[in-house]
């Protein structure tokens, strides 16, 4: 159980209120029709799975229902940073 800070609500809430949506900052190909099978497969299915810092997308499902980004250590579960959609992470190492 960990507490997550929702940048929209401005509060720490219990993990159960949130849903994880996996890796953040995945850009949809600008011209999907011109993708090779490999590029499309990578976009659809291949995700970073680091043991360490991970930038991921969360939604405050049982709260404000808005999306935001979290930088979390996947080994210790420590949350390093919470930032809004459209922003870039400050903690990268």
């Amino acid at each position: 159980m960990f507490l997550i800070y929702c940048p929209h609500c401005g509060e720490h809430r219990e993990e159960e209120e949130f849903h994880n949506h996996g890796q953040a900052h995945i850009a949809r190909p600008l011209d999907p029709d011109s993708c090779t099978d490999e590029e499309w497969g990578n976009y659809m299915f291949f995700r970073k799975n680091p043991k360490g810092l991970h930038h991921e997308l969360w939604v405050h499902a049982a709260g404000c229902r808005k999306f935001f980004n979290v930088t979390r250590n996947t080994a210790t579960y420590e949350i390093k940073e919470v930032y809004k959609i459209g922003e870039q992470p400050k903690v990268v190492e």
Partner: peptide
Amino acid sequence: DGYTGYGQRGSYS
């Protein structure tokens, strides 16, 4: 658990 993790422990929920 819904999130990725290597912590070898899970959520109480």
